[in-house]
Design a protein around this nucleic acid. Sequence first.
DNA 1: GTTTTTTTGTGACCGAGTCTGGTTATGAGA
DNA 2: TCTCATAACCAGACTCGGTCACAAAAAAAC
Lengths: 153, 153
Amino acid sequence: MAPKAKPAHHSEHEWEQRATETLADSGYRSGGARTAVVELLAGQDCCLSAQQIHDRLRERDRKVGIASVYRALEVLEGEELVHRLEVGEGGSRYEPALPGGDHHHHVICDDCGKVTAFEDPPLEDAIEKLAGRLPHMVSTHDVIIHGRCAGCS
Amino acid sequence: MAPKAKPAHHSEHEWEQRATETLADSGYRSGGARTAVVELLAGQDCCLSAQQIHDRLRERDRKVGIASVYRALEVLEGEELVHRLEVGEGGSRYEPALPGGDHHHHVICDDCGKVTAFEDPPLEDAIEKLAGRLPHMVSTHDVIIHGRCAGCS
DNA sequence: GTTTTTTTGTGACCGAGTCTGGTTATGAGA
DNA sequence: TCTCATAACCAGACTCGGTCACAAAAAAAC
């Protein structure tokens, strides 16, 4: 029902490959910092903050500047390769955008701050129908559920 | 379908009254700044940023400090009288919380930044059912739809 | 009206995110 | 392979939303 953390499977490498190609096609050069960010994100399935990305890269001895992380994320978001979401607590989070609307949403524990992903087809359905009724050109959507996780009750 | 800006009607005064009572019951004294914030919010039906609240109060010659605005909002959120939401673009927004789950969600135009409210019973329904399936004690939820408004297309 | 306690405003402060300038790496063309 | 224009990089300065600390002002309690 609520897949916790899917183990690495092929779609992640697919994403990395797609990302690399898309960036090249759009005329971006292959610098170290951006590549490192793409590699890290590829191995990740749920959202990370820019700071987390920065820290993890340093742990792996990829000394990229924080500004480069933001720049890379900005480019990736522009190419619709990552999805940025605001999750409260001041600060955006980023996750790889999988193709074909295959996406999940997030539950936040207001106690411990833990973020968990979930998928729910009926919810997607309701949103899709709703999108047709709005006078907007709908591109993406985020659903954020607040509550208290099992551990904090 | 998507009510733009409902004219002031009784529920707003109800909210103001309820807010005042709740605050008094919880032992808060009636200072000028918090009262001003409550009054302003009561006349508002959709979300405002702290900065917007601060500015509008100054326009009305209520010289409240920005810290007081944040403090008032923090208290009101704690009493579940206002709902805080993250809408992107760095910064929270606040709106009066109407009783009984009677709430709306928001569409953001990624071009001009305009925020519009909408209601959608089927969506609420899907979320309610989903909440039962999650291992969390769900308290609130936000749905944020990104797109391009009619004016920006 | 005096005392006690909350509330308020100011200004210093913090941290996420952005911008800038100078440096380094990339890739295309000779 | 060498050159060179340009993209990408990093560090550090800066912006801006939000918080903290503290002294002054205002409520309630007496």
